[in-house]
Computed example of a mutant assay.
Amino acid sequence: MRNPTVADAEAIAALMADCFTATFGSLYDPADLASFLDALTVERWRAELADPAFAFLLAEDDGAAVGFAKLGPHALPVTPAGAMIELRQLYLRGSQQGSGLAARMMDWVIATARARGAGELFLSVYVDNHRARRFYERYGFEEIGIYTFMVGNHADEDHLMRLAL
């Protein structure tokens, strides 16, 4: 695992598209899925990788990108009690699930959030992604509300979750 650079934008973009499609692609009309993924441009990834408001972790296996995590500033419809940060994405290829890599990534997420002075860590997770929700609950995240997550023109219901740091 390492902190990626702007040069890793293409690998992260491809990993995001692959993981999102593998996990959720069957839920959407192809046009909605394409619209969502097309908005995640390599240029956008480069800008976020260069922006100190974001923190990234890239997980690799034999030099190939297999997962990533991204922390970012307040964007979800939550009212923090103080300093906060959001887990914007945590994706891992299916071949790596159950390997312990997700736990090591989450340890980095929490440590990085604390190191940046956050007292709260927020995320959203698709209501029917029970595996991810159980994973976050093991770390002490609690549901605090519902959030509408748009994929193209399709509205999904996500659980908003919070972890007090």
Rank of each mutant, 00 (worst) to 15 (best):
M105C: 02
A132F: 03
E120W: 07
D128S: 11
I146N: 09
R162W: 00
F20M: 00
N3V: 14
D128M: 09
D61H: 12
A17Y: 03
R44F: 02
C19V: 09
V151D: 01
N3F: 12
I144D: 05
D8V: 01
T5Y: 08
T41D: 04
H74T: 11
Q89H: 13
V151Q: 01
D18L: 14
W108G: 01
R93T: 07
L71T: 09
L58M: 05
V6M: 09
R114K: 14
L37R: 07
L160K: 04
V6W: 06
M1H: 11
I110M: 08
D29L: 08
R162E: 00
E10A: 11
A53V: 11
W45C: 04
A111I: 05
E137A: 10
D62F: 06
G72T: 12
L101Q: 10
S26P: 06
D156K: 09
G72P: 04
P73S: 02
Y139K: 01
F141N: 05
Q96V: 08
T112G: 02
H130R: 14
R114M: 05
A55L: 11
A65I: 07
R46P: 07
C19F: 07
S99N: 08
T23G: 04
A53Q: 15
E142L: 12
E86D: 02
F54N: 10
V109P: 02
T21W: 14
G98L: 04
R46D: 10
G63C: 03
A13G: 03
K70N: 05
D8I: 03
A22T: 15
L15N: 05
A14F: 00
I85M: 12
Q89C: 09
G140C: 03
L163P: 01
L37G: 01
A103Y: 08
D38S: 11
W108F: 10
T23L: 12
E120A: 00
G82A: 10
D62G: 11
P4M: 08
M150Q: 15
A103T: 14
A65C: 05
L27R: 13
